[in-house]
């Protein structure tokens, strides 16, 4: 057990425990906080696995942007007044069964697969220099397409989230 193994297991326990907290806690605010902790643990995994730039991106984009958006939405909606009702027992059992059996099957499959050895390579393969060189040569087309996707998502979010104009009596709403 060297340092990386201990770190790996601590991060794994943290990730899985906080993910359980996301799913099981009744209060949506607590779910968001647990999800942020899960993202920090996952970023730690990225750091162990030589993906330093992605670890930072994960923290900035997920824990910084998306989760703050979620928190704002939850605070706008005032959901804490009535505790959220859970689904029936039947649906919960169905969820546990379907999730659990698939989980067991995949676990058995990965356990019986043969285990690759870690090949020692330079640990700075995931730094921003290497990623940037490849991003602007080989992956330049997906990069540009994702910028168009972002523009579409931005316009779509504004159009969907816009407040509809108040209709006068007897006036038909067009489109």
């Amino acid at each position: 057990m060297d340092f990386y193994d201990i770190l790996f297991w601590i991060l794994s326990v943290m990730a899985v425990g906080c993910a359980l907290g996301v799913v099981l806690s009744r209060n949506p605010i607590h779910s968001v906080i647990f999800l942020i902790l899960t993202f920090f643990a996952i970023s730690g995994h990225y750091l162990i696995m030589n993906a330093q730039f992605l670890a930072i991106v994960n923290i900035i984009v997920y824990a910084g942007a998306i989760m703050v958006l979620f928190l704002y939405i939850l605070m706008l909606m005032n959901l804490n007044a009535d505790a959220e009702p859970q689904k029936g027992l039947l649906v919960q059992i169905a969820g546990i069964l379907s999730g659990g059996t698939l989980f067991l099957v995949l676990l058995a499959a990965t356990k019986s697969a043969h285990n690759e050895e870690i090949n020692k390579v330079s640990t700075n393969v995931g730094l921003i220099t290497n990623l940037g060189k490849l991003l602007f040569t080989k992956y330049v087309l997906p990069f540009e397409i994702s910028s168009v996707l972002f523009l579409t998502a931005m316009i779509g979010a504004i159009v969907i989230g816009k407040k509809e104009p108040q209709l006068k009596n007897g006036e038909e709403h067009i489109a």
Binding site: A19, V23, Q86, K87, V91, A94, I96, L102
Partner: peptide
């Protein structure tokens, strides 16, 4: 865990 949460929660944000 994500699949379970998606199937059992009713809150759309969760």
């Amino acid at each position: 865990i994500g699949i379970y949460g998606f199937l059992t929660r009713r809150n759309m944000i969760t």
